[in-house]
Amino acid sequence: MTVTTRAQRRREEQKTGPFWWAGQIVSWLALFTVLCLLAVMVVIPHLGGGTAYTVLTGSMRPDYPPGQLIVVKPVPVEDIQVGDVLTYQLESGKPGVVTHRVASVNSSLSGEQQFVLRGDANNTDDAPIVAEQVRGKLWYSLPWLGYLNSALSASQRTWLAWLAIGGLLAYSLVMFAGAWRDHRGKKTS
């Protein structure tokens, strides 16, 4: 027969009391939220060959307002159709990009395919672009995460991902050690 002291019972009650459960729920929700953010902002785009961008202007309102995170993925030029949302370079080979909707697909006099795009909230078309300027077609978008994307540099997002992975490993080791300690303590009593 095992004899438990009041202190042991109190410790056991504290491990399963309402504050303990509330702490567990909050910590798991926080962990789940961070992992989901990392997944949609870093991991999924990287694995899928996409690139995350932040909408900075209101030219694509109401569907893609400022602060929206958009992830674009390269597609074959032949698959681009009127109505698709593309991200393209303003000038070929330069980093500045714009995300607008395809208004028409044309051919130049030399037979090269050209795309005319327009922001959903704009009244005029953009200048025609060529295939080399297209960075990708909209894959998915998420509201407000663009602000977070803009606040963090690529290296900071990478460090955050590694920090989350390390945190998960440390948390699992602590949980394993606690379970082992509890199991060992029950055997000796």
Results as ranks from 00 to 15, higher is better:
residue 139 W to L: 10
residue 155 S to R: 15
residue 116 V to A: 04
residue 129 I to G: 10
residue 79 D to M: 09
residue 138 L to Y: 01
residue 175 M to V: 14
residue 166 G to K: 10
residue 73 K to F: 04
residue 100 H to K: 06
residue 91 E to P: 01
residue 182 D to H: 14
residue 21 W to V: 12
residue 44 I to D: 06
residue 77 V to G: 06
residue 144 W to C: 04
residue 47 L to Y: 12
residue 167 G to C: 06
residue 47 L to I: 11
residue 86 L to M: 04
residue 134 V to E: 08
residue 68 Q to W: 07
residue 85 V to E: 03
residue 93 G to K: 06
residue 21 W to S: 05
residue 16 T to L: 05
residue 44 I to H: 09
residue 35 L to S: 12
residue 162 W to E: 00
residue 85 V to S: 08
residue 80 I to H: 09
residue 33 T to L: 14
residue 16 T to H: 15
residue 70 I to P: 02
residue 85 V to T: 12
residue 48 G to P: 04
residue 82 V to S: 05
residue 80 I to T: 04
residue 4 T to P: 09
residue 62 P to E: 07
residue 150 S to F: 03
residue 85 V to Q: 02
residue 109 L to I: 11
residue 67 G to M: 05
residue 36 C to P: 06
residue 4 T to Y: 15
residue 92 S to P: 00
residue 4 T to M: 13
residue 100 H to E: 01
residue 146 G to K: 09
residue 82 V to E: 10
residue 74 P to H: 07
residue 73 K to M: 08
residue 134 V to W: 07
residue 80 I to M: 06
residue 136 G to P: 11
residue 118 R to N: 05
residue 181 R to E: 06
residue 64 Y to A: 03
residue 168 L to V: 11
residue 100 H to I: 02
residue 165 I to E: 03
residue 72 V to C: 08
residue 117 L to V: 06
residue 150 S to G: 11
residue 91 E to Y: 14
residue 173 L to V: 13
residue 46 H to N: 09
residue 106 N to M: 05
residue 99 T to L: 05
residue 185 G to Y: 07
residue 56 L to P: 12
residue 39 A to D: 13
residue 102 V to A: 04
residue 186 K to V: 13
residue 6 R to N: 09
